[in-house]
Simulated scan of single mutants.
Amino acid sequence: MLLNCDQPLPLLSHTDVPPRVKENFILTGYRFPNYSLSDCLLSAFRPTNETGNFWTHFLPVFIFLYYFVEVFGLEGAPHSDSPFFYPLWNYFIGVFCLLMASSMAHLLNSMSLVVREVCFFVDYGTISAYTVGSSLAYYYYIHPRAGIVKLAGQNASRMDLKDEPAGAPTSSYAIPDLSMFFETFYIPSACVVAIICVLSCCNTRQKWRQHRYIIRTFVFLLPFLVSSTPVFYRLLSSSPYDTTSSSFAASTATPTFFYRHCLWLLVSAVFNISKLPERLAPGRFDIWGHSHQWFHCCTFLSILDELFMIKAEVRAILLSSTLLLPPAALSRLPGPTIASTYGVMLLLQTTIVSIIMWFSWRASYIYGPQIEQLAKEQPKKHLKCH
C-alpha cells in the first residue's frame, strides 16, 4: 500500500504504468493507478495528463447552466415545471450527466484498473443518454408537427388541404411518407441506437482495442444521424411559420446553429482519431494541449450550439399566435407527458445501467486479479516518504 505521508504521489512515465493506462503519444504525467479517492480529487489541482481532461468538461457544466436557464425567461414561457418544458429538462439531464460523468471519469480513473473501466463505461452510457435527451427535444420542438396544432387557414397556400376537414389541423409534411417514422419509430429508434452504441463502446475496452478510437467515433455517428432527422427535415422543407411572423424570424437562426453544431462535431472527431497535436511531438503535450482536451472543447461547443438551436425553436413556438402549445386534442402528435419524456429516459437509463453492470463484472473478473500483483511490482521508491 502506498504511503504518501501527506505528499503528492509521484507522477510516472508511460514505461511505469500498466498497458491499460497508457495513452498514445502521452509519455509523462501519469498518475499511479492506486490513488485513493482523496488523492484523485486533489489531483484536479495539480498538473497531470488528466487535469485538462477534467476541467474541460467540468467548467462547461456551469456555462451550459447559465445559457440553459435563459429559456425560462423567454416571452410567453410557461412555468418551468410545465409539461411544455418536460423535453427540455430531459435534454438538460442528458447534457448534465454527460459532462459530469466525463469529468469524473477522468478524475477518478486512477483508483484501480477496475474503477478505470467502470468510469469509462459510465461515460459511454451518459453519451448515449444525452443523444436520446436531444432526440426528445428535437421531437417536441423541431419536429415538423412538434406536438402542436396548426390552425386551419394558416399558410394554406403552402399546404395541401384537400384531405383535411374544415377546422382540422393542417399538415405541414412535405414528405408524407416520413410521418409514420416520426410519429411511431423516431424515439424508439433513438433509444435502440443508443443502446447499441453503449454495447459497442464498452466492448472496445475489452476487444478491438487497436482501433478503439475510430470505432467509438463512428459508432456515435449513427445516433447523430438518427436523432438529427427532424432537423434535416426542417432544413429540407418549408417553415411551419408564416414568413411575416416573429416566429419565423426567431427560427431563421436554426440552420446556422445546426451547421456549427455539425462543424464542431466533425472537428472533435478529427482530434479524437488523429491524436493531434501529440502525434507530431510525443511528450510535448502530455499535460496541456493534447487531443483529448481539444476533443472535449469541441464537443462542448457543439452542445452549446445545439442548445442555442433548441432555444431558437422554443422561442419561435412561444411567439406564434397561430400555434397552440401541447397537449392539444386535435394534434396528431400528443404533447409531452411524464411517460413520454421522463419515462423514456428512465427506461433507457435502466437498460444502460444493466449493460454497465455486466461489463463492470467482466472487468472485475479480467483485471481484478491483476491489482494485487500490480501493487507488489511497484518500485520501492513509491513506498517512501519524501
Rank of each mutant, 00 (worst) to 15 (best):
P240R: 08
Y124T: 06
N109V: 06
S227I: 07
P165N: 11
A129C: 14
T244G: 04
E164K: 09
A249Q: 13
F182M: 11
A194H: 01
G167W: 01
V149E: 07
E164L: 14
V219D: 07
L236N: 10
T184V: 12
Y233P: 02
G125A: 13
R116Q: 15
G147K: 02
Y173M: 14
L161H: 06
M111I: 15
L178P: 00
R209I: 10
V193K: 01
Q154T: 13
I195K: 00
L235F: 05
K162L: 08
V192D: 03
V132H: 02
V114Y: 03
A168Y: 09
M159F: 15
Q210A: 13
N203I: 01
S228C: 12
L151M: 09
S171N: 11
K162T: 15
I215R: 07
L136I: 07
N203G: 11
R212G: 08
R216D: 12
Y139M: 06
S239Y: 02
I214K: 01
L225F: 11
I215F: 08
V231H: 00
A146G: 15
L161C: 11
T217C: 15
V122T: 11
I142N: 03
A137G: 07
V226W: 07
V226T: 10
S200K: 06
L221M: 12
H106T: 09
L151A: 10
F182K: 00
A137D: 04
G167R: 02
S246V: 02
Y241N: 01
F232W: 12
C202Q: 02
N109R: 11
S246Q: 12
A174L: 10
A250T: 06
L236R: 05
F181S: 05
S251D: 14
S245W: 04
H211F: 14
F218E: 02
S128E: 07
F248G: 02
I187P: 01
S247T: 08
Y139I: 04
S135E: 09
L161G: 10
I142K: 03
F224A: 12
I175F: 14
A166L: 13
E117L: 11
H106G: 08
S135K: 01
L221K: 00
F220V: 08
S189R: 02
P144I: 14
